[in-house]
């Protein structure tokens, strides 16, 4: 099951810069780390500051929604993973990021930008684990 995507260096660099900008702005105004795991965890009952978290999440969802519906822009999306495996993946990501204290945004961008040694190690580990998993699924198990 080949699922080719085009190499987009310019868009990805520009999009990445916007992700970085959002992290800098959230630190400058709210004094907060723009980590999706932390923002989602802060929504659970008994946490203060749910307002800004919900607003951030609403903005993050609305940007692609408005671009595709009102803007008529086509955003590539392809997922060939069977739904039961998406459930397994979601559970693993939810449990893993909670114990690991962050994800690609929290550790990968914000933590690394602060040169946190926990974040640098976490990033190396989850990148390696993801690479091995993709290799096992696409080339290992069943031999694609």
């Amino acid at each position: 099951m080949s699922d080719m995507t085009a190499f987009t260096p310019i868009q990805s660099l520009l999009g990445g810069a916007l992700i970085g900008l959002s992290a800098v702005l959230l630190m400058a105004f709210h004094g907060r780390i723009a980590g999706m795991t932390g923002i989602l965890a802060g929504l659970l009952p008994g946490q203060e500051g749910r307002g800004w978290r919900l607003a951030f999440l609403a903005g993050a969802v609305l940007a692609p929604l408005l671009a595709t519906t009102l803007g008529g822009i086509e955003i590539p999306f392809s997922s060939q993973t069977p739904l039961p495996w998406i459930v397994v993946s979601g559970l693993a990501v939810g449990i893993g990021t909670t114990f690991g204290g962050g994800c690609t945004s929290g550790h990968g961008i914000c933590g690394n930008a602060r040169l946190s040694r926990r974040s640098i190690l976490a990033t190396l580990i989850f990148m390696l684990a993801a690479g091995l998993t993709v290799y096992a699924i696409r080339h290992g198990i069943g031999g694609a």
Binding site: I19, G35, M36, T37, L40, L57, A60, V61, A63, P64, S79, T81, W85, I86, V88, S89, G90, L91, A92, V93, G94, I95, G96, T97, T98, F99, G100, G101, C103, T104, S105, H107, R118, L121, A122, T123, I125, F126, M127, L128, A129, A130, G131, L132, T133, V134, I137
Partner: peptide, 24 residues
């Protein structure tokens, strides 16, 4: 930190969704 990040990586590698990508 180590085990959680490894489990996150495995989950990320199964479907290609991470928290920051999946919300948008």
């Amino acid at each position: 930190l180590i085990g959680g990040s490894a489990l996150f990586g495995v989950g990320w590698g199964i479907a290609g969704f991470c928290p920051g990508g999946s919300i948008p």
